[in-house]
Write a protein that binds this DNA or RNA. Structure first.
Lengths: 365, 365
DNA sequence: CGCTCTCATACAACCGGTTGCACGATCAAG
DNA sequence: CTTGATCGTGCAACCGGTTGTATGAGAGCG
């Protein structure tokens, strides 16, 4: 069995080998691949046949060296395991692939320093960047954008190409939906600090609150994970809310679990709305959530980047993808919560106090 | 604002620029980075300072051309969005990063042709491959392994380095667990054709069945997704089983949804066990599942690959990671299923027949 | 004081493609 | 039959590093 060499592959044939074999020059062989229109069709034919025969694969490093582009773009996300990203990554990879680009993936672990490290490392080998939900300060991003073509996802910085998954409309619909169901006090459980999406959602909720005359308690899942969602349930119930909008589907599921543990039934006693619509397919009842086009964002970001690489002048690019509420099974009419008493029996003092307060308030529908 | 050039970055300084500026030769500059021990410390100092000053970044393509290695490894998975993979990908990326390697990610969409395309495309730019759950025929993989260093995850091919997430132990425990709970007829809902994991799980179940004297119905989720899981519920109930082991957590959740739709309560009426333990954090009650060390698999695969690239001779590498059952909330004692009659009331004819058959059989516990 | 020997650095070839330009052949038009 | 355009191909420089070898300066030694 032939041993595979570590560095350059064993007998990987080069242009010269093919050229020698055919008695033509290296440039002819090269052109057979890059500019076949300059060659006699028959010559192209011969070269390709020989290449095929030797299973020749052009050396991309050499090509990159002379042409100045590598055919690679970098995609950096804060957390691959966050279900928001895989669809985005997949779309990005597929879009890149269609135009003969590869994707270098980086996971910054929600850590700006790590993100910077990755950017610096990748800079050597890629033609451009897509940074999804970057946690870097605006100034740093502007700086990087000057050095290499760069497209942001879910960061809104003027004059830096960006693709935004805009949850405003969906969140507004979510609030309206809860209002229609008769909820009067709701809560928002926020996400990680520095998250553009979180900011945007907070703003949307605040705006919608006025319109519908609701009381909104702002809480935070710390961290913004399933466990964080479960943990926040105590304050959530104490707040007197009868419905919650969560930063994302993961937190929403954590909240669902926390509610279930306390015997609070969903949607009978409490309504829960998620955000992202990436986990709908994993619970029963299925989660009412704000659907975003996160996969599209990945595809669009890549195509913008490739346009940029193609040298096109695009001006100030700012794509905004809209959103809408998808009503499924975790939202229902308000006012029935006090029937379920299991939660009261088991509830700790603070929770009970919260419920008592709630009782004295006005009850809708 | 300085325009960023498409191809090679605007004024990206090269070795020569630094060399000229310092009045030294290019090789000296180069060695300041690669072999500083050959230079006078003071010289190294000066070079590094100048490099820093000009924010010099070595051109990886040029480096790759002369050294023969790119500092990139490829990782190809069948489906990024399958929650089994993100932890694996993250571990792989992080492991690679620690040794100054980058990861090119490919998604084959469960399609062997696409997988081959990606491999061929990537071959130009990477030093080696990690193929996770490859859908390629054994022969093709052996062939590829001859050309480039390659490590498989969840494919067991002699003389090709491989890391296996072995679910046998966990599945055995799962069957034992169900037997202890008094289940006598159980079902296995299998995964995608060609999946090594599915094969392995089938074998484990078959082996365990004999030991515990259980009847096992083999079913298939088509496709092996949430929707497929939901769809298989009808035949599942018709089979007379009172518990099911699903190919993976996603299918298990689909089954949970399908059961819930029919009013079959879990775990009171029916027990469900998943596999992978990657989605436990998304339902209530939390899923009883077979825990695998999928993240570890990614990390190990990468470190094996890097050892290979380092030129180490490792012999026939075959890592096997074990598994175990994690009991959570979706499994319970058998025998109570017939109490829940909602499902009977709504059940279509075939389902009812299935239940009738079941009734005539022996009932445990 | 001259001769090694060592050390730091310079020179130049090379990695494997790409590409502007030159050259010779072919062919049509004058 | 000459002339000039056109076409196909070869030549050679170049991309930006790496690395084996040559060179020169200075230290150590007799």
């Amino acid at each position: 069995m032939p041993k595979v060499e570590a560095g350059r592959s064993a007998g990987a044939p080069t242009l010269s080998v093919i050229a020698a074999r055919l008695g033509v020059s290296r440039s002819t062989v090269s052109r057979a691949f890059t500019r076949p229109d300059l060659l006699r069709p028959e010559t192209v034919e011969r070269v390709l046949a020989a290449a095929e025969d030797l299973s020749y694969v052009p050396n991309q490093a050499a090509r990159a060296l002379s042409t100045g582009h590598n055919g690679i773009i970098a995609l950096i996300v804060p957390d691959i395991a966050n279900p928001f990203f895989p669809p985005l990554i997949r779309a990005a990879q597929s879009g890149a692939d269609q135009q003969d680009f590869c994707v270098l993936l980086g996971d910054s672990a929600e850590n700006p320093d790590q993100e910077t490290r990755l950017i610096n490392r990748f800079t050597r080998q890629v033609d451009g960047f897509v940074l999804a939900s970057s946690r870097l300060p605006e100034q740093a991003l502007v700086e990087h954008a000057k050095r290499k073509p760069l497209v942001l996802v879910n960061r809104d910085i003027p004059r830096v190409p960006r693709v935004l998954v805009d949850s405003t409309a969906g969140i507004m619909q979510a609030v309206a939906h809860l209002a229609e169901l008769g909820h009067q006090t709701i809560a928002y459980v926020g996400g990680p600090p520095g998250s553009w999406s979180d900011h945007q959602r907070r703003r949307a909720i605040t705006a919608a609150r006025a319109e519908h005359g609701l009381a909104v308690t702002m809480l935070n899942a710390k961290p913004a994970t399933y466990a964080g969602g479960t943990r926040v349930v105590e304050s959530l119930l104490a707040s007197g809310a009868t419905a919650v909008i969560a930063f994302d589907d993961v937190v929403a599921h954590g909240i669902l679990a926390g509610l279930a543990e306390r015997g609070v039934r969903v949607p009978d006693d409490f309504s829960v709305i998620g955000c992202d619509d990436v986990l709908a397919a994993t619970t029963y009842p299925p989660l009412t959530t704000v659907s975003l086009h996160c996969a599209d964002a990945g595809g669009i970001a890549v195509s913008v980047l490739l346009e940029l690489l193609g040298g096109r002048e695009l001006g100030d690019v700012r794509y905004s993808l809209d959103s809408s509420l998808t009503v499924r099974g975790t939202t229902g009419p308000a006012g029935s919560r006090l029937r379920g008493s299991a939660s009261l029996a088991e509830a700790p003092g603070r929770l009970r106090a919260g419920l008592a307060m709630q009782t004295s308030g006005p009850q809708g529908s």
